[in-house]
Amino acid sequence: MTDNKNIGISKDLVAASATPLVLSILGQGETYGYLIIKRVRELSGGQMEWADGMLYPVLHRLEDRGLIESTWRESEEGRKRKYYRLKDAGVRELHVQRSHWLLVNQMLQKSWEGQLCST
């Protein structure tokens, strides 16, 4: 995770948004690390890019907190992959995070509207 990859986005913001992003991607169904990274790249239009290896510690911490669970399975090509899936607690956490981020988003939107009117 280097600065030139995430142009303009602060490290703190990247770090803060990692958990809700991972949870919401997993909210769309079971998947594995490589696809999560790809999805993040797509969602941000290439604006936010994680150093791939940094995703896994985030996943492992979520697993330790009991929000997600993982299983090793073999893909069709015969490669072993670790699949991650949301647990019930993870779904609840996703809802909580969603409401918090929407609130922040709404607050910012409203405050910017005010600024546009006054100028």
Binding site: A51, D52, G53, M54, Y56, P57
Partner: peptide, 17 residues
């Protein structure tokens, strides 16, 4: 190089492991 550099990656994992 995309997976991460050898200095930072172990540090990140060490926080969990």
């Amino acid at each position: 190089s995309r997976v991460g550099n050898r200095e930072e990656l172990p540090d990140e994992y060490a926080k969990t492991n």
